[in-house]
């Protein structure tokens, strides 16, 4: 992992559809090298997937997202890993992290309705062994996702010509 790998990753995170040709020109290396580096980064699972950042609110199908905090009693020999592994298998769980602080695991869950999310947490997550407490935070509005602001900002105007 060198400076060039990092630059490639940053460019891809910013725009996964950027062409190899552009990256090669911008970084001053041959196109073939860009391809082989990306291949390697995928093999090494540094790059997990190319995907899109969607503003689901604009899709307008009334879907619901929530952040769920979980307090978990860690298991001898396994810590949080086995519980986390079970939880992560649910299709509804979009992300799952071990965090410091009052709670231990933090989930991002999506569903079609508020009721569906609530039932999922109550019936599928909460009963799992070792889970001591849950706290559900319904997402009301997304301001920024993956570094991309979702609200419209007034574009600052520059003078069209300055010396």
């Amino acid at each position: 992992m060198d400076e060039t790998d990092r630059s490639i990753l940053e460019l891809l995170v910013e725009n996964a559809r950027i062409t190899d040709t552009d990256m090669a020109t911008m970084l001053g290396i041959p196109e073939g090298e860009i391809r082989s580096r990306i291949d390697r980064l995928q093999k090494e699972k540094v790059i997990r997937k190319f995907t899109a950042v969607v503003d689901w609110e604009r899709v307008g199908d009334g879907g619901v997202s929530a952040i769920i905090d979980l307090k978990v009693a860690p298991e001898r020999d396994f810590g949080y890993d086995r519980v986390a592994e079970r939880i992560s298998r649910f299709r509804q769980v979009k992300s799952l992290r071990l965090v410091s602080g009052v709670y231990d695991l933090q989930l991002h869950v999506t569903g079609k309705t508020m009721k569906e999310v609530a039932r999922f947490v109550a019936e599928q997550i909460a009963p799992i062994q070792n889970i001591r407490e849950t706290a559900t935070h319904i997402i009301m509005k997304t301001y920024k996702e993956n570094g991309i602001p979702f609200h419209e900002r007034e574009m600052a105007e520059r003078l069209p010509i300055t010396m």
């Binding site: 520059r158 003078l159 069209p160 010509i161």
Partner: peptide, 26 residues
């Protein structure tokens, strides 16, 4: 030297200006 040019520019639409001598970042 570019007053005339500048005035013309202000009347036009869909201009891409490579004439701006300042950063485009906030």
């Amino acid at each position: 030297g570019i007053r005339k040019f500048f005035d013309l520019l202000l009347t036009m639409e869909e201009v891409i200006s490579l004439g701006v001598g300042e950063p485009d970042f906030s």
